[in-house]
């Protein structure tokens, strides 16, 4: 009978003893993203689609957005599979395909390789999206909110294999556009 007691206790203990810790990869955050507390530099919370109706893309808004993109995203994007999946949705919805195709590039540069004209860090990519770049990358300031921006940034980084394999998206439910992001490796310069 003692073995039965032991069985029951063990079963109960293991079912209940695991901490209710949230696993970061699986969090689904539906409200505003967590405020960053320990980053150097200006706060990402300063990024807002500003009062553009009265000053659409005016010099104030431009200056604000150019100077205040932090280098790192707030926590909760690059380790979060849901956020990266949402980023993939924005990539499709906002027609990034139009210039970048599914990452292979076209009118715009490729996003799946290791060549980054303006930097590969999340802050660089976010800045690119927000303020635009020479030679045709439009500015999306005022068109995305902060959460969408960081989700999209995280997805773009996953396209070149910079995210962990268990966070990056797997294959799309669409025509195949190459290896799923979770199975990509960053391509090194010099490799064709």
């Amino acid at each position: 009978m003692s073995s039965r007691c032991l069985d029951m206790t063990l079963c109960a203990a293991l079912l209940l003893a695991l901490p209710l810790a949230g696993c970061e990869r699986e969090m689904r955050r539906f409200d505003t993203p967590p405020k960053a507390t320990d980053r150097a530099g200006p706060q990402g919370a300063a990024l807002r689609p500003g009062p553009f109706a009265s000053a659409p893309g005016g010099p104030d808004a431009q200056a604000r957005s150019m100077s205040q993109v932090p280098r790192q995203p707030p926590p909760g994007y690059e380790e979060n599979a849901f956020a990266v999946a949402q980023g993939k949705r924005w990539y499709r919805w906002f027609n990034c395909n139009g210039c970048h195709a599914n990452g292979g590039g076209g009118m715009g540069p490729a996003l799946i390789d290791a060549t980054w004209r303006y930097g590969r860090q999340p802050g660089d990519i976010a800045e690119t999206i927000l303020q635009g770049r020479p030679n045709g990358m439009p500015s999306f300031a005022g068109r995305l909110n902060e959460e969408q921006l960081w989700q999209l940034t995280a997805y773009v980084r996953s396209m070149s294999g910079q995210l962990r394999a268990d966070v990056a998206p797997s294959r799309s439910d669409a025509l195949s556009a190459g290896e799923p992001e979770s199975r990509r490796e960053t391509q090194r310069p010099g490799r064709r």
């Binding site: 699986e26 999946a85 993939k88």
Partner: peptide, 29 residues
């Protein structure tokens, strides 16, 4: 149950129909 307590419990129904349970619409593990 370990997965469930770590917020990684399945969430697509016990019958898990794709595409909801598939890679694009069921992100994570």
């Amino acid at each position: 149950f370990a997965a469930f307590f770590l917020n990684s419990g399945p969430d697509a129904g016990w019958f898990a129909y794709p595409p909801l349970a598939g890679p694009e619409f069921g992100p994570g593990k």
